[in-house]
Amino acid sequence: MTDLRPWIYGTDHDDPNPRTPTPGHVYVELVGGPLDGQLLDVTGFTPDERADGALLISPHGAYGPGGRSDYVPEGGDTCRWRWNGDIA
């Protein structure tokens, strides 16, 4: 049976539970682009960093391995960050 829980961005390739959120941590859902559907742990982000979003390494973006995908908060929703494009 396929595990339908979202993948957590940044988990190691050999992590036995790459879809299990850590209790007490805060996550945002990445929407659109190459990381669509993944969760990003923003527990250590400051309020300003959460307001700015993040440039995330994405091997499947427009620039291939090493490129970054820009994700920004979606309107007033603090739980979802929308893809804003890729950069080299």
Rank of each mutant, 00 (worst) to 15 (best):
T43A: 08
G66H: 07
G32T: 10
P59Q: 03
G33Q: 01
L55D: 15
S69R: 08
G76H: 03
G61F: 01
L4D: 09
R50N: 05
D77M: 07
G66N: 13
W81R: 06
E74W: 12
L40C: 05
I87R: 11
G85D: 05
L35R: 08
T43F: 05
V26R: 14
P23E: 12
L35E: 11
D86P: 08
V31C: 11
D77S: 02
W83P: 09
P21C: 07
R50M: 08
Y27Q: 07
G64C: 11
W7F: 15
P59G: 12
V26G: 02
D3C: 05
H13I: 04
S69T: 14
G67T: 04
D12F: 02
I57V: 14
E74A: 14
E29T: 11
M1Q: 11
G67R: 04
Y71P: 14
S69M: 08
R82N: 13
P59V: 00
I57M: 09
W81G: 04
L40G: 04
G24F: 13
T22W: 00
C79I: 02
D48E: 15
L56M: 08
W83I: 05
T46R: 06
G53K: 00
T20R: 15
S58L: 01
P16I: 01
G32V: 11
P47E: 01
G24V: 05
D3T: 07
L40E: 02
P6L: 04
G67F: 05
G33S: 10
A51G: 03
A88L: 10
P6Y: 00
P18V: 02
G53F: 02
W83K: 10
D48M: 14
R19E: 12
E74N: 14
A88C: 11
L40H: 09
D52T: 07
R68L: 15
T11Q: 15
A88S: 14
L56H: 01
A54P: 03
G37S: 05
D52K: 14
A88R: 09
P47G: 05
T11F: 08
R5A: 14
R5D: 07
G53N: 00
G61D: 09
M1W: 06
F45L: 05
G24S: 10
D41F: 11
G75E: 13
